[in-house]
């Protein structure tokens, strides 16, 4: 016994200097299909720390993603694959805000999402806020493949430290990439790249003017143009919207904190979603 203990101590010695955090791994694969006038669950696979709940809602098929690990830290890996089958509509949101916790030096969490929307289908990707804690590190990517007449609404709010809780994201890493293809052709890409002294960087006028909350919105639909003027009317002075190309509406806004971001965001989601906001957002 004693000998074994010594062996363990020796072989694990390097790990003691930089204690490894336990890693969380989660995977979700879900699809929707059309059944008569309704959208219903097609395939569903969930593993590790990722769970999908299906609360009864008044309208539509809404999956609520839940991270049983309680957050994301360096080295965690989450993968999500969602598909809206022909003529079906799938809304995905989260149970709560996703917390990205302090990471050990050199460790980076990873969240990868792949969305596919088939002909006549629609996905509403409406996660609640992603909250970046001080010294958090996250690489995130979302790619979407759309059929010719498919629709996609993406809303991604990110909070850089909860001011009300006295938190500040002084240092960290946040790389966030979005790529949207329609019939195989790339129609939109965004790459947010923040690293090092994030809070000080956000204070700069051309970056965020001191804001600590950011929302990225994309609405891809053949008739997206119809919503440009009403969307603009709802945006705060620190927000903007543009129909970058036919069928592709992009909007971005910053706000001092998550409360004020939500105030601006809720009517915008309601407009673009053309349906009641998922209940998890409002409770």
């Amino acid at each position: 016994m004693e000998e074994r203990a010594i062996t363990l101590t020796t072989s694990f010695a390097p790990a003691e200097t930089v204690p490894r955090q336990p890693r969380a791994i989660g995977a979700l694969r879900v699809s929707s299909k059309r059944l008569g006038e309704r959208s219903v669950i097609g395939d569903l696979y969930q593993s590790g720390a990722s769970k999908l709940l299906w609360p009864r809602t008044a309208s539509g098929l809404t999956g609520v993603m839940l991270n049983t690990a309680g957050g994301v830290t360096g080295g965690d890996r989450f993968e999500i694959e969602a598909r809206a089958g022909v003529g079906s509509r799938l809304t995905l949101t989260t149970q709560a805000a996703e917390r990205i916790y302090r990471a050990q030096p050199g460790e980076v969490g990873s969240i990868r999402t792949r969305l596919t929307v088939e002909a006549g289908g629609r996905i509403d990707w409406l996660p609640q806020e992603t909250i970046l804690f001080d010294h958090s590190a996250l690489r995130r990517s979302l790619s979407a493949e759309l059929a010719g007449d498919a629709r996609l609404l993406l809303v991604e709010p990110v909070i850089f430290g909860r001011i009300a809780m006295g938190e500040e994201t002084r240092e960290g890493l946040f790389h966030d990439r979005i790529e949207i293809r329609r019939e195989g052709a790339l129609v939109f890409a965004d790459a947010t790249r923040l690293g090092g002294a994030i809070a000080a960087h956000l204070d700069a006028g051309p970056i965020a003017g001191g804001a600590r909350a950011l929302a990225t919105l994309v609405f891809a639909a053949p008739d997206a143009e119809r919503l440009l003027a009403p969307l603009r009317a709802l945006l705060p002075p620190t927000g903007g919207a543009s129909l970058i190309r036919p069928g592709l509406l992009f909007a971005r806004m910053v706000a001092p904190d998550s409360y004020l971001l939500r105030q601006s965001l809720l009517p915008v989601i309601e407009l673009l979603q053309d349906a009641p906001i998922p209940r998890t957002w409002t409770i």
Binding site: A191, T192, R193, L194, H201, G205, P206, I207, A208, G209, L214, T238, G239, G240, R252, M253, V254
Partner: peptide, 8 residues
């Protein structure tokens, strides 16, 4: 990039 307000 991170020039959010310049892009807005």
């Amino acid at each position: 990039s991170s020039t959010f307000l310049a892009d807005i």
